[in-house]
Design a protein around this nucleic acid. Sequence first.
DNA 1: CGTAGCTTTGACCAAGCGGTAAAAAATGGA
DNA 2: TCCATTTTTTACCGCTTGGTCAAAGCTACG
Lengths: 202, 202
Amino acid sequence: MTQARAETRIQRKNKELILEAALEVFSTYGFRGSTLDQIAAQAGLSKPNLLYYFPSKEAVHKELLDGLLDTWLDPLRAIDPEGDPTQEILGYMQRKLEMSRAYPRESRLFANEILQGAPRILDALKGELKDLVDAKSQVIKSWADRGLIADVHPQHLLFSIWSLTQHYADFEVQVEAVLGDEGPFDHAQEFLDHLYTRLLKR
Amino acid sequence: MTQARAETRIQRKNKELILEAALEVFSTYGFRGSTLDQIAAQAGLSKPNLLYYFPSKEAVHKELLDGLLDTWLDPLRAIDPEGDPTQEILGYMQRKLEMSRAYPRESRLFANEILQGAPRILDALKGELKDLVDAKSQVIKSWADRGLIADVHPQHLLFSIWSLTQHYADFEVQVEAVLGDEGPFDHAQEFLDHLYTRLLKR
DNA sequence: CGTAGCTTTGACCAAGCGGTAAAAAATGGA
DNA sequence: TCCATTTTTTACCGCTTGGTCAAAGCTACG
C-alpha cells in the first residue's frame, strides 16, 4: 500500500503559484501557444522546479480546466424552478456577467479551449454540461408553457446569455478599443437587463 | 526603379493554396499554436516552398487578417441611415449570422486574434473599426431619438449582434455538444429575429 | 531548341521546446 | 545537532521550430 503523505505548506503554496501563473499564460496564448518556461517565469520558479509539482504541461492545463468547469456551471445550477421565472433568468444573466467581470481570464481560458475544438473537455460538454442544460431547458420550457414568460427556445436563450456575458471578457480588447476604455460593465448590465426584460415579457 | 513584375499563374494559385491552408490552421490553433510545417502540409507544399511565397509566418497571418477585417465590416457599412430602422438592424444581424454560417473559420481566426490581445490588429480596431462603429452608433442614436426604435445603447446593441451571431461559429463545438448536432442555424435565426424585434419595438 | 528566369527541393542551422537525471541545498522532526 | 526527506538547481537530451541557402528542375518565350 502506498501511503499518501500529507501536503506540505510549500507544496500548497507552489501549486497555487503555478496554477495562477498557468491561468495567466494559457488564457492568453491557448494550450499550444503557451510554454512551460513562460509559466515557470510567471510563477517565479525554474522549469524543472515546476515539473517537480506537475508531471507535464498537459497536467497543469487539465487541472485548471477541471476546476473551472464546475465553478462555471454553478450559476446555471442555481436557477430555481420554484422562483419567479423572469427574475431567475435575469439573475442567471447577472451572475454570469459578474463572473465575466471578476474572472475574465477563466472565461478566456474556456473560450480558447472551445475555439480550438475542445480537445480536452469535449466529453464534459457532451455529458455534464448537456445534462444540466437539458434539465434547465425543461424548466424554462415549462415556464413558457404555463405562460409565465414569453415563448422562447430554451437552449438558444441559454446560448444568448453565455455569448452576451462572456463577450465582455473574451473580447475585452475589442470592447475597450471601440468604447475608448470606459469601464463597459455598468452599461452592459443596464443593456442586458433591458434586453432580457423585454424578451421574456408575455 | 524596381519594376514590379506581373504575377504568374503558379504564384496566384500557390498563394491562394497557402492562404486557404493557413486559414484552416490558424483559425484552429491561433498564431503561436500553429506551425509552418502544418500549414505547408495542409497546402500540399514543402516548408521552404511556402517561404518562397511569403517571407515569414507572420506575413501569412497578417495577409489573412488584413483581408478579413474589410470583408468582416461590410455588413455594418451596409446599414442605411435612410432605410427602415428595425429592418436595417435586423438585416445587419441576419447578414452577420449568415457570415457565421458560411465562414466559421474566418470568425474563429478573428476570435483567436482578439482573445490573445489582438497584438497584430489592435491599431485597426482603434482606428477603422472604432470610426465605423462611432458613425453607425450615431445613426442608431438618431433613430432612437426620433422615436423610430426603442431607446437602446447603440454600441452595446452592436456588441450584442457581434457576440450572438459569432457565438454560433466560435463556440460551434459547444453548441453542437449541447444540441446533439442538429444544424443550429435555423433555430438561431428564428430566435434572434424574435429577440431583436422585441428589443427594438417602441 | 536554347536559355533566362521562375519554382522546388534537400540539407542544414540556431534557438526553443517539453521533459529527465542527479546532485546540491534547504527543511523539519527526533 | 543530526539526518531523512523535501525542494531546488544545473546540466543536459532529443525533437521541433522558423528560417536560410545553394543547387536542381521546370516553364515560357524568342
